[in-house]
Design a protein around this nucleic acid. Structure first.
Lengths: 237, 237
DNA sequence: CGTACGGTTGATACATATCAATATGCGTGG
DNA sequence: CCACGCATATTGATATGTATCAACCGTACG
């Protein structure tokens, strides 16, 4: 992502009706972001809903810590997770009036929300901010489009491999090298399954298979060691 | 999509190495768009590549007529179509330097391309243009995210049904009513399959099944009559 | 009128889902 | 601190939707 005057990292999607109290952020929190300065902060506990699908989208959110899942539910309970947001990611952004997805805390997390109208007004005469927001949208788009290929054309193995590599990269902040690397996953198998368009059983089986093949190791269910990244990458194409 | 000073309709993705000659557009073409005014026009024939994956993305495209498919290829030939662009749609837009998808003419089509640098420069001090471009990106994002749900969690029937309803809406320009409606599809079964993450055989079988159930009629392979939109809609959620 | 390409239909294979049982980890309360 | 009980995860057996392989059909075109 290109550098901008405003420090926003790429991610997407809106917000409204939480189970946390929003307080003005005056003190020095994190890298005193413009958004943080403009907004209020709240903490959500595991599985709490940050905003629901169809709710009015009059705020934009920035994740300070923790992990958030952005998802859509089908009438019969099928769920698709469009994205996992990590610290620094922006979500809850909408052009329309309402959220098209819901957002939930995967684990305990801290979020800033900013009134959309305020941000929009600022963006009108602050070209840098406008571009930063645009970059957020574009980043989301790139991610979503990549995921289309995963969901449309990849096998279970390839999906899991690309997920692991992606998470490793995002969480470490750098491209995964040839060297072994451990990832601490914040989300459950069910979340992974709903992100990859698979069932929980298939995810589990695929992971143990990758372990058998010595591409990864599973010291515990949430901790995954990428032992052979090039093998994983091979599955990833 | 919200109205803007600049008439751009929502769609996405970049451009470089065509098999058509680009000429300055002076004459009155279509609704003399700003983009048309700034750019040059070319015509592509069926299956011609408008730009390829990884090519430099220094232009942005607007489709004047015809249909374009925006797609990605996997090493072994698997293909995922991220989007079909119809007349008025913008594509080939990138934040990064290179195209992440290729674009090909589904049938004969006419395209305007504008230098990205020019558009970018204008957008810097034309807030309306900036917002219009942003809206294009956001529209693409919404479409892509919707498609994630289709690819991740829907059955073949549901995919085909949502595709038909979507195409009917986009091509007619209005929400499909309860009344029967005919769609003239510009793309082949293979294109549909690659868009929906299915095989050509499954698409074909699903269509004939929908015909058996009297949800649609197939006067010819490219013409499809939506006979029972509510039934299709039922499959859609 | 024949050939070619796109589409349909059929028979079978396979990857992943589903259903079911067992295991593992984790927080709670005794 | 340990034991219980619930959550989450793994593993197994089987079912099923879609892919694959293979003909066949129809329409457009030379």
């Amino acid at each position: 992502m290109p550098s901008t005057a405003v420090a926003i990292s790429p991610k997407m999607f809106g917000h409204p009706v939480p189970a946390g109290t929003w307080v003005e952020e005056n003190g020095s929190v994190h890298s005193a972001d413009l958004l943080v300065a403009l907004g209020s902060v709240a903490t959500f506990s595991r599985n709490a809903e940050i905003f629901s699908e169809d709710a009015l989208a009059d705020h934009i959110y920035v994740l300070l810590s923790g992990t958030v899942r952005v998802c859509k539910l089908l009438g019969d309970g099928r769920r698709q997770i469009a994205n996992f947001c990590l610290a620094g990611d922006v979500f809850g952004w909408e052009m329309g009036a309402r959220h098209r997805f819901s957002a939930e805390a995967v684990g305990e997390c801290k979020v800033v929300r900013v009134k959309r109208s305020i941000l929009f007004a600022r963006a009108a005469d602050d070209a840098d901010l406008a571009q930063a927001l645009w970059a957020v949208t574009a980043g989301e788009l790139a991610r979503a489009q990549n995921h289309l290929l995963v969901l449309g054309r990849k096998t279970a193995q390839e999906r899991v491999a690309s997920f692991l590599l992606d998470m490793a990269e995002r969480m470490s902040g750098s491209v995964v090298s040839g060297r072994a690397q451990e990832v601490q996953l914040p989300m459950s198998r069910q979340d992974i399954a709903d992100y990859l368009g698979l069932t929980i059983e298939t995810v589990s089986r695929t992971l143990t298979h990758l372990e058998d093949v010595e591409a990864i190791a599973l010291p515990s269910s949430r901790r995954i060691v990428l032992r052979n990244c090039s093998a994983l990458r091979g599955l990833n194409v």
